[in-house]
Nucleic acid binder design. Sequence first.
DNA 1: TTTGTAATGTACCAAACGGTTAATTAAAGG
DNA 2: CCTTTAATTAACCGTTTGGTACATTACAAA
Lengths: 223, 223
Amino acid sequence: MSNIDSAPDEPTIRRASWKQDPEGVKANILAVALEEFSRNGLSGARMNEIAAKTQTSKRMIYYYFGDKDGLYLKVLEAAYQEVRQGEEKLDLDHLPPTEALERLVEFTFDHHRKNPDFIRLVMIENIHHGSYLAHSDVIRKMNKAAISQIEEIYNKGVSTGVFRQGLDPRRIHWMISAMSFFNVSNAATFSLLFGADLQTDEEQSALRAEVGQIVTKFVVLNG
Amino acid sequence: MSNIDSAPDEPTIRRASWKQDPEGVKANILAVALEEFSRNGLSGARMNEIAAKTQTSKRMIYYYFGDKDGLYLKVLEAAYQEVRQGEEKLDLDHLPPTEALERLVEFTFDHHRKNPDFIRLVMIENIHHGSYLAHSDVIRKMNKAAISQIEEIYNKGVSTGVFRQGLDPRRIHWMISAMSFFNVSNAATFSLLFGADLQTDEEQSALRAEVGQIVTKFVVLNG
DNA sequence: TTTGTAATGTACCAAACGGTTAATTAAAGG
DNA sequence: CCTTTAATTAACCGTTTGGTACATTACAAA
């Protein structure tokens, strides 16, 4: 009854054959979804569009991720995981505290710049009051370790006598994050309002150095 | 034909009478729309929902603002206008540069906290790559003056010999904005990951003072 | 080979959504 | 008082959108 638009002499459309590859399909969906959510926001992203850009079908998205929210949550988790993994590569234990701090700042600054999709996801998540992050034990556990990095550097610096006492490592992390994050998250509006030249490579290098100075001057004694 | 659900003895529904109040209606729509866009994002906000929370009807929104994008743009412009007006109240000319700078930082920090809806709009705008802000001459003109404020303070400080030479006022503005903005924009995720106590009044006061210190130490000679 | 189950493709749907049509009323100008 | 226009109401519409039903295929275990 519903087969009115196909030629009658073509009895059944030949189905394309396929291989089973659950992990590949899932990874492919996540990669596409990350880009779409990052570009358009949670409500702005379209399941049809995501499916179209995938090598599989919409049915598969719902098969593996349940619904749109489920997909978004998994995208968020995967993004956090990848970014935090990138951070772990940094080894600063062998450096003197002042240098370690400066390196950490510069790395963080660059790392944020290199992961705009992640930054945008975090922005989106904040617009939603972090309600998805709140339901993800995975992510919360990952970040507990993020503070320890700067904590070690700071404690070392204090005991060596080169850092000021009485600072909260979380606040130092906050400072570094604030400037590194803002630099990416608000690039569009800030450039529009105060000049696009702030995004050139030279200006960004200068900015990075300046952020290093700011943090150093704040933490180091007689900085 | 379609009048099957209403009682037959009630011939015509009595139209509610109304007064004409174009400005009031427009203002009412803008206020509701600001909240809805701010809470749900551009795609996330629903025209029906906005209309429902208004004292008028959906038709009026389209009558005055054309379409959803038009409404969003006007909301954005109105929000910028109100926030920038609040900033103009600040008069720092009579203060010595160091004190003026510290006051500016503290004001900016507080001002951002007091306008979370505006902050969220700017976040949303950045997710859309500032494409609406780019089309608004009104907003761009408003912000040209924002830099002059810190420029005056800085120049005064340099000529008095208390500030370092060779700094870019835009970058100082950038620093202050970054920390003040991040403090509000990323409050949700940052609190979730590193402790909700950062949002208490005491911690926020301490943070504000610390931001003041950071900026001061950076700008002031021998800071 | 058979059979059960996980994985995939196709076609489809009900609801939500942005937007519109058309009639009606308030108020200002002559 | 009459006419005109701006403001407002109520009902409606076509499309988009998230989500499904159902048939089909790959693959592994028995």
